[in-house]
Design a protein around this nucleic acid. Sequence first.
RNA 1: GGGCGCGUAGCUCAGUGGGAGAGCGCUCGCUUCACACGCGAGAGGUCGCUGGUUCGAAACCAGCCGCGCCCACCA
Length: 861
Amino acid sequence: MSSLKDRKRFEPSEVEPRIVQRWLDSGLFHPQPEGDASENFSIAIPPPNVTGALHMGHALNGSIQDTLIRYHRMLGRNVKWVLGTDHAGIATQTQVEKRLKEQGTSREAIGREAFIEKTWEWREEFGGTIVGQLKRLGASCDYDEERFTLDEGYARAVLKVFVALYEKGYIYRDNYMVNWDPGSGSAISDLEVEDREVTDTLFHIAYPLADGGGEVVVATVRPETMLADVAVAVHPEDDRYRHLVGRTVVLPLVGRELPIIADEYVKTDFGTGCLKITPGHDPNDFEIGRTHGLPELSAIGEDGRMTGLVPAYEGMTIAEAQRAIVAALDEQGLIRARDPYVHTVPFSHRSGERIEPLISLQWFMRMDELAAPAIAAVRDGRVKIHPESQSRRYIDWLENIRPWCISRQLWWGHQIPVWYRSHPTQETYVGMEPPEGEGWTRDPDVLDTWFSSALWPFATLGWPDGTPELEAFYPTDVLSTARDILFLWVARMVMMGLEFTGDIPFEHVYVHSVIQAPDGRRMSKSLGTGIDPLHLIEGGDRPPVFTGGGEFPAYGADGVRFGLLAMSSTQDVRFSEEKVAQGQALANKLFNATRFVLLNVAEDVELAPAVQTVEDRWILSRLEAAKADFAERVEAFDFSKAALGLYDFVYGELCDWYLELIKGRPFDAELSGHLLHVLRETLALAHPIIPFVTEELWSLLPASARTAELLAGARRTAADPSLRDAEAEAAIERVIATVQAVRSWRDAGGVKPGEFLEARIDGLDGLVPLVARLARLTPVEDDRAPVATIPVSGVQVDLLTGVDPEEAAAKVEAQRRHLESEIRRAEGKLANDGFVAKAPEAVVAAEREKLERLRAELEAL
RNA sequence: GGGCGCGUAGCUCAGUGGGAGAGCGCUCGCUUCACACGCGAGAGGUCGCUGGUUCGAAACCAGCCGCGCCCACCA
């Protein structure tokens, strides 16, 4: 490593990996299970898919959680960030199947056991990717205890929960309408379905009355399902059809007689007012069928092909069957109309294929009993959702909750702990261990991945055993997540936590932004709108969504963390590379400020806040303000303000002013000690957001300045309002305003930056030398006529030399016009009786004061 | 159909009742002994539109226009 003097820039690519290693070696991220959860601080990471790589959402959420974790760790709490990955049934199985296909085989060919073995191998190979990426981001998770939702202990917890819920009667098996995903060959839950707009043809088909007295016409976009029709429904009040109720129609092509029934579900003003009822293939028809006790027929099978219900069509694909049926109907002249029809249709979120509603024998879980306590927990504030507005979405969803289809026709997952045998009698066995005796067959299905995820906060800590970890870290403190899994995951964790641990799983739920592509579209690989956080950290190609193209510079993990936090809010935001660059600039600024201090301070100084001068008092006061603001914002989950406030302090106060103000002073022991104190406090302040640069700089501090080996393990001192110093703040504010005013005049007057101007300075007392140095003035005490007079907040600076008189005159004129317009405004306000009478006294007084000041400044001009 | 949110400088966003802000971009100046990925000084905005409440509205209320998200079973 070159000497500090030669390191003019903070080089994240060189420094950060080295820092990660120091953290990992330190053991700081792996807490002992001591103390209890009320005093400790813990977060369970939303487990990324084991197939996954770090995307923008992970990077943002990682930055958020790590900020919280590091902040609380530095407050001295025993902190644990539970790490792990999710087995992600469908996603993982799909990946492995794809690989098998490339190898010329398939899961069916190798069999269940070998397939699962292959999947574990696959996990060994790729499962570590995202964990390594989290390390690179600086996430201070407990890497020594990584969990996986299929681990042995975790699996025991899952089975125990299944058995318990079965025994309570919440879990049951039923033939029911499910969302069949032909892509994965499995049922999926309502939450895994997304609606897309599709243009279909709406066919109007005539069904003749059985007694020959005419026909009814039904409308459908899916004529192929008519094979499974069991009735035609009309509205009971519909005068057009009332007389037909109770009669029957003949189902074309099939010949089956269907009753005409009355049901209020049917809209009289939509379509023909006659609805064909197909309980086997439409969720609404299914409900109607159940209320009317109609048969449930299946024309389409789980393989996506036509069943033998009507032999002529058996084996056809859905599209083939539709063509054949439409052709046959045409031949018989039964199609009355075809209209293009735009409507929304369910698609699988996972495979992207159109959902086929089918009746299928599946395992379900009744949710209403579990929902009630979960609603109460949020209502009474035991679980707090931020922002508050998300609570209503949560409650609304739980209040209207429906049974959850929990079985999946996959191999990768927790196999359902149910065994069947038909000899000697028809039997079902449910238990954590296989049953005794011969002839048992285990249910081949696995559980929905979200079933196991729902146990995450406690199953990762060793539940159902009463482990020390559970004692120390459950309930967790914060659960941070995006909006889209509030129902899928968060609500279910609350339900399961309350049911099985008797306690909430976390106290705060923070719902963060979704970061969109710079053009406002969703970030997605296939659209080319995805941005790889690793490319931001280490440099790499800009994706096509950046029209400029080129490469990202290596912004470093600090830059990315800062940038993502600064961008984030409670609503969706567009990705802004500028914010990441701002974070990198902050890291570099801090690096150079530290360099300046360390290259100048006296050796062997005692570290202590000193209050020799007004500016020393000022920076201590501002540092205090920055600390208080930071704490308040982090604790309120307002990460963008925490990040930007940090930036403002470091740039706008520490570097732009304090370090400039002290440059005229000798670096004696006192100033050195003071500078090191301010520096140390600033590094500690900034560490949760930009941990790398601050840790690196900490290591460069003299040993006496470090209160711990690693900054990550050091304490933050709590905010102390008594350290605020209003007097010093007011004084330095005047210095700053004066310097800025003089600089502005110099610039307008064409004065060379290096040139010193003679000036008379009134109203600053002992602070004249500060202003003189920063504004490049030579204070003089004589009564020559000024070339220009600069009035600013109680201070008056008479420039005696240097400024071009014409330029000065122009500036005076501009200033005069500005002051006059301000005065008019203030006068107008004060002349308004309503204002004087009704506005708060303080506001009126402030306005009067302002007017006086403006008048004085105008006078001075 | 119901619900939630957004519209402020060229771009991305702060600002919830008393003189319009930040970062980036732009203009001008500067090798000032921490940093030229720097420093200093500037230009740039009828705060979507219309009406209302108020002494006073970017902010509060109503309507309209535009955009986004969530929920919902109209064949």
